[in-house]
Nucleic acid binder design. Structure first.
Length: 881
DNA sequence: CAACTGGAAATATCG
DNA sequence: CGCGATATTTCCAGT
C-alpha cells in the first residue's frame, strides 16, 4: 500500500493561517490490494479555493473539501487524471489553486472499462507533489464499498450550495474560448467524456493540509470515515463500532414531517425556514463571527475543527468524544479528500486576478447560498453563462432554451433501492421498460458534449443536489455507456458523452445510486436537510452547450422522482400524478390519483396547514371504490371548511395506507365559487382575462381569472380549445392562449418571466401539461412524461389518459403524451441576464394554452392547470423583493 | 468470483 | 424511562 504524506502549505505569503489560507492537499494512496485505490485526502486548502469551485464552474471544478473515499474515489483519482499507470506511485500533488477559478473535479474514475476515457484524463498537470501515505492509511479490508462510493463522512463541507460568483467576473476572451472548448468533447473516440485534452484544463490533486497526528482516513471504510465528530475529537482509533453512533443534534421526526409537507423547508427557503439555516445568509455571519480564527500554527484540520463544526455538533460536542471513542479509528490517515481539479490554462492568470469576493471563512464551513442566491439565482436563472462560470448544481435551469432542449426521453423506474457504502452496488437505475433511462439533447449536433448527471432532490422545491444520495458509477460488461465521475462541491457528478453520431442521445446505464448515512450527512456543517424519510431523488442531467459568443448555455432536465429506500418502496403509497389540482370550495369533484402501493384501505386526506406548519383543517376524501384500481385511487374531493374564501386557498392531500404510511403531500387548491356559477362564455372569459392583464392587475386578479377558467363550463373550455387547436394537434411550443385572446392582449407577448422564477421549468412548455405531477416534481416542472402511467385507468376517458409507451424511443414520450385541458404557463421569452432587475412590471406571462385531444370528453378531472400557481409564486417572490 | 438482488435482522429514532 | 411502531443500516443468501 502506498502512502501519501500530507502536506500543507500556505498560499498567501505572510498571511496567517486563516482557514482560507490553508493550502489544499489532496492525498491519495493506492491500495494495491484493491488495485483501484487511492485514498484521497483532502483538507480544505483555503477558503478561496473552496469557493472557487463555485466561482467558476466551467473551468473550475467545484471542490469538495473532504472526501471520504471508498474505493471509488480513488478510482477516479488515479485514473482520471493520471490514468492508472501514472499512479504506480502514490503521490500527492500540491497545487496552488487559483482561488476563484477552479471548478474542482473531485475524482475521476479509473475504471478499467472505460478505455475511451483514458485520454480524457490526460490533462496537464501542474505543481504536483507526490507523497507517500502510511500503510495504515487505508485498510483495504474495511472498504466494503465495491463501487465508487464515497463515504458520506468525507462530505464534510457543505459546498453544494455555494454560489458561484464567477458570473460577475469580467470576460476574458481567451478564457472564454478555451473554456468553451471544454464543454465539448473532442473526438468521441478518443475522449467520449470530454477529454481534458480537448480542454485546456489541468487536473491537479489538491492536498489538503491535515493534521497528521490523528486523523482517520475516511477512506478506511464507510464506518471509519471522518465526520465532523471526528474532527472535533480525533482520537486513536480502534475499531469502528459495528454501527454508526447516532448523530447528535438530529432533527426530529416532526421536523421531517413539516419538511415534507412542503410548508417548511429547512433548506433554501430562508424566508420560511424557522430555524437557523447554515445555508442561509443568516447563519453565515454568525458562523463567521463565532468561529475563532485559526491560529497560524494550526493545521488545516485544526482550523477546520475550530471553525467548521456544525452548530448542532457544537451544541452537543460533549457527546462526541464518547461516540468517537468507539467509532473511529484515527491514525495517520487524515481526512481524505481527493480532488483533482481541472484548471484552465488561463486560470492562474485570469482567475488569480479575480477578486475574491466571498469571505473565505464563510466558505470554510458555509458553502451556503446566500439569501441573495436563494432568491435570485436558485431558479429560473438564465441558462446562459460565461464559460468560466458554469452554474452551481443547485441552480435551477430550464430544460429548454431556444432551439435546444435537454430531455429525459425515457424515465427511470420510480423505485430504485439505493445501496449503502457497506453494501455492494445494487446496479444501475433502470427504466420501466427494463432498459435504462435515456436522455437526449435536441437542437445541437455539432460536437460531442458532456452530459452531466447527479442525484438531485425530489421534494417540492427546486431540484438541487441531494445531500443523502450520490450517483454511483456502474461499470461492467453490462454497461455500454462510457462515463466518468467528477465531484463538484460535494456532489458526485457522472459525465457521459453525448455524441452526434448517437443523435446526442445517451442511455444512462452506468448510474447507480449510493445512499449516505443520515447521521453522517446531518452532521455536516451547514447541512439542514434531514435524511429521515427523505428518500426520494431524481436523476438530474445537465449539458453545457458552447455558444458562438463564447458563452455557454446550460440546460438541465430532471427525471421523475425515484423512491430509493427499500422499505418505502415496498410500503409507502406514492403519488405520481393526479387528475386535477383544484376544485371549488364545494368539493364534490372526483380526484383520480395515480401512483403505486395503494391499498384497498388507502385514504386520501386533505389538509390545510398554517404558516406555523400546524394543521388547521383536515378532511378525508370519500373513496370511490368501484373506480379504484391497483395504481389509482379515486376520491370525491371534500368540501373546504370555508365556503367564502375570496381567493384560492392552497391545501394539501396525501394518500395514507396507515398511520405513518403516507405519500408525500401534494398540492391542491380550493377556489372561490364566485365566478364559477357565472359560467362564462369563452369570450367573456378571455375578455376578462385580457382586461385584467391589460390593466396590469396583480396576481390575485390573474388567479381569479384562472379560477374562472378552471370552473367555467367545461364544454366552453373544450370549445375554446377546439377553436384554437386543430384536432389532435398539440402545440407545446406555441404559447397561445386563444387566438382571440392573443389579439386582445398583445401585452402578453411582451411579458417576460421574472428571472427569479421559481419554476425554471416554465421555460419548457412541454412540462406544462397533463396532470399535476406529484408535488415534489411540480415546482420544477421537469418534463414528466410519465412512463409509468398505468395504461389501464378506466376512470378517465381513455383519450385523456394515454398510456405512455415505454419504449426506448427518444422523444416519443412527450409527444405521445397528450396534453389536456388548458394550461397557463409562464414562459421565458427572453433570457434574463440581470436577475436583480426583475420587477413585476418587467415581467410578463407568456400565457399559452396547450390543447390537445379536442375529442376528450372534458370532465372536470380532465382539466387542469398546474402552472398559474407557479406564476403567482414567481411574481410574488419577485414583488417581495 | 464479482456484481446484483431480495429479504430481513439489527439498530435507531419517534411519539 | 420503557415500549411499540417506524425508519435506517447492515447482513446474508441466492442469482
Amino acid at each position: 500500500m502506498l502512502q501519501c504524506l500530507l502536506h500543507r502549505s500556505r498560499r498567501r505569503k505572510g498571511e496567517d493561517i486563516a482557514p482560507d489560507d490553508c493550502a489544499s492537499f489532496f492525498i491519495f494512496s493506492r491500495d494495491q490490494a484493491n488495485s483501484s485505490v487511492s485514498q484521497p485526502v483532502c483538507i480544505p486548502h483555503n477558503e478561496h479555493q473552496i469557493h472557487s469551485s463555485t466561482h467558476s464552474s466551467a473551468s473550475c471544478l467545484q471542490d469538495y473539501r473532504t472526501y471520504d473515499s471508498s474505493s471509488e474515489i480513488q478510482d477516479y483519482t488515479c485514473s482520471s487524471s493520471f490514468g492508472p499507470k501514472s499512479f504506480e506511485c502514490p503521490s500527492i500533488q500540491i497545487t496552488s489553486i487559483s482561488p476563484s477559478c477552479h471548478q474542482d473535479i473531485g475524482t475521476f474514475e479509473n475504471a478499467e472499462n472505460n478505455r475511451p476515457e483514458r485520454d480524457y484524463m490526460d490533462r496537464p498537470l501542474r505543481d504536483h507533489l507526490c507523497l507517500h501515505l502510511e500503510p495504515s492509511f487505508r485498510e483495504p479490508s474495511l472498504s466494503p464499498s465495491p463501487g465508487s462510493s464515497i463515504s458520506s463522512r468525507s462530505w464534510i463541507s457543505d459546498a453544494s450550495s455555494c454560489e458561484s460568483l464567477s458570473h460577475i467576473y469580467d470576460d476574458l476572451d481567451s478564457e472564454l474560448n478555451e473554456a468553451a472548448a471544454r464543454f465539448t468533447l473532442g473526438s468521441p473516440l478518443t475522449s467520449p467524456s470530454g477529454s481534458p485534452r480537448e480542454h485546456p484544463v489541468e487536473k491537479t490533486w489538491h492536498v489538503c493540509s491535515v493534521s497528521p497526528s490523528s486523523r482517520q482516513s475516511p477512506c478506511h471504510s464507510p464506518r471509519n470515515s471522518i465526520t465532523d465528530e471526528n474532527w472535533l475529537s480525533p482520537r486513536p482509533s480502534s475499531k469502528p463500532p459495528s454501527r454508526p453512533t447516532s448523530p447528535c443534534g438530529k432533527r426530529r421526526h416532526s421536523s421531517a414531517d413539516i419538511f415534507y409537507s412542503g410548508l417548511v423547508s429547512p433548506h433554501y427557503s430562508p424566508a420560511t425556514s424557522p430555524g437557523p439555516s447554515p445555508r442561509g445568509s443568516i447563519t453565515e455571519d454568525s458562523w463567521l463571527n463565532a468561529s475563532p480564527h485559526p491560529v497560524p500554527s494550526l493545521s488545516l484540520y485544526q482550523c477546520w475543527q475550530e471553525t467548521a463544526i456544525p452548530l448542532k455538533t457544537r451544541k452537543t460536542s460533549e457527546d462526541h468524544s464518547a461516540r468517537l471513542a468507539g467509532k473511529t479509528e484515527l491514525n495517520t490517515e487524515d481526512l481524505a479528500c481527493l480532488s483533482p481539479t481541472v484548471d484552465m490554462p488561463t486560470d492562474e492568470s485570469a482567475c488569480s486576478q479575480h477578486p475574491v469576493i466571498q469571505d473565505s471563512s464563510t466558505d470554510q464551513f458555509l458553502s451556503v447560498p446566500s439569501h441573495f442566491t436563494w432568491n435570485k439565482h436558485k431558479s429560473g436563472h438564465t441558462p446562459v453563462f460565461r464559460t468560466s462560470s458554469l452554474p452551481p448544481l443547485d441552480w435551477a435551469l430550464p430544460s429548454r432554451y431556444g432551439q435546444y432542449e435537454l430531455k429525459v426521453d425515457v424515465q427511470p423506474k420510480t423505485h430504485h433501492r439505493a445501496h449503502y457504502e457497506t453494501e455492494g452496488s445494487r446496479g444501475a437505475v433502470k427504466a420501466v421498460t427494463g432498459n435504462h433511462p435515456i436522455v437526449k439533447l435536441t437542437g445541437y449536433t455539432e460536437k460531442p458534449l458532456n452530459l452531466q448527471m447527479f442525484i438531485g432532490t425530489a421534494d417540492d422545491r427546486y431540484v438541487r443536489p441531494h445531500a443523502f444520495y450520490q450517483v454511483h458509477r456502474i461499470t461492467g460488461k453490462t454497461v455500454a455507456t462510457a462515463s466518468q465521475e467528477i465531484v463538484i462541491t460535494n456532489t458526485k457528478v457522472l459525465e457521459i458523452p453525448l455524441l452526434p453520431e448517437n443523435n446526442m442521445t445517451a442511455s444512462i446505464d452506468c448510474a447507480g445510486i449510493l445512499k449516505l448515512r443520515n447521521s453522517d450527512i446531518e452532521l455536516r456543517k451547514g447541512e439542514t436537510d434531514i435524511g429521515r424519510k427523505n428518500t426520494r431523488v431524481r436523476l438530474v442531467f445537465r449539458v453545457h452547450i458552447p455558444q458562438t459568443s463564447g458563452k455557454v448555455l446550460s440546460l438541465q432536465a430532471a427525471s421523475v422522482p425515484i423512491e430509493c429506500s427499500q422499505r418505502s418502496a415496498q410500503e409507502l403509497p406514492q403519488v405520481e400524478k393526479y387528475s386535477i389540482n383544484s376544485c371549488s370550495v364545494n368539493g364534490g369533484l372526483e380526484l383520480v390519483i395515480t401512483g403505486s402501493n395503494f391499498m384497498p384501505d388507502s385514504k386520501v386526506i386533505f389538509l390545510e396547514k398554517g404558516q406555523d406548519g400546524c394543521t388547521h383543517w383536515e378532511a378525508e376524501g370519500k373513496t370511490v371504490f368501484k373506480k379504484c384500481q391497483m395504481n389509482n385511487i379515486v376520491v370525491e374531493i371534500p368540501a373546504y371548511h370555508n365556503k367564502t374564501i375570496a381567493a384560492d386557498v392552497q391545501v394539501q392531500f396525501y394518500v395514507c395506507n396507515g398511520k405513518r404510511k403516507r405519500s408525500q403531500s401534494q398540492r391542491f387548491n380550493y377556489t372561490p365559487v364566485l365566478l364559477k356559477q357565472e359560467n362564462l362564455e369563452d369570450g367573456d372569459l378571455q375578455e376578462a382575462t385580457a382586461v385584467s392583464l391589460a390593466k396590469g392587475r396583480g396576481i390575485s386578479d390573474l388567479r381569479m381569472i384562472h379560477t374562472s377558467l378552471l370552473f367555467q363550463d367545461q364544454r366552453s373550455i373544450c370549445k375554446t380549445l377546439k377553436s384554437s387547436s386543430p384536432p389532435g394537434v398539440e402545440c407545446p411550443t406555441q404559447p397561445t392562449f386563444t387566438s382571440s385572446l392573443k389579439h386582445e392582449i398583445p401585452q402578453i407577448s411582451k411579458i417576460q418571466e421574472p428571472c427569479t422564477s421559481s419554476s425554471p421549468s416554465t421555460a419548457d412548455p412541454e412540462t406544462m401539461e397533463n396532470y399535476p405531477v406529484s408535488i415534489y416534481s411540480s415546482p420544477q416542472k421537469q418534463s414528466m412524461p410519465y412512463q409509468c402511467f398505468s395504461p389501464d385507468i378506466p376512470v378517465l376517458p381513455s383519450s385523456s389518459l394515454t398510456a405512455m409507451p415505454h419504449t426506448g424511443q427518444p422523444s416519443s414520450h412527450t409527444h405521445d403524451c397528450r396534453l389536456r385541458g388548458i394550461s397557463l404557463s409562464p414562459t421565458i421569452t427572453h433570457p434574463r441576464q440581470n436577475s436583480a432587475s426583475s420587477h413585476p412590471t418587467d415581467m410578463s406571462l407568456g400565457i399559452k394554452a396547450e390543447l390537445v385531444d379536442h375529442d376528450i370528453n372534458f370532465q372536470t378531472k380532465d382539466l387542469e392547470d398546474i402552472t398559474l400557481d407557479d406564476v403567482a409564486e414567481i411574481i410574488r417572490r419577485d414583488m417581495s423583493h
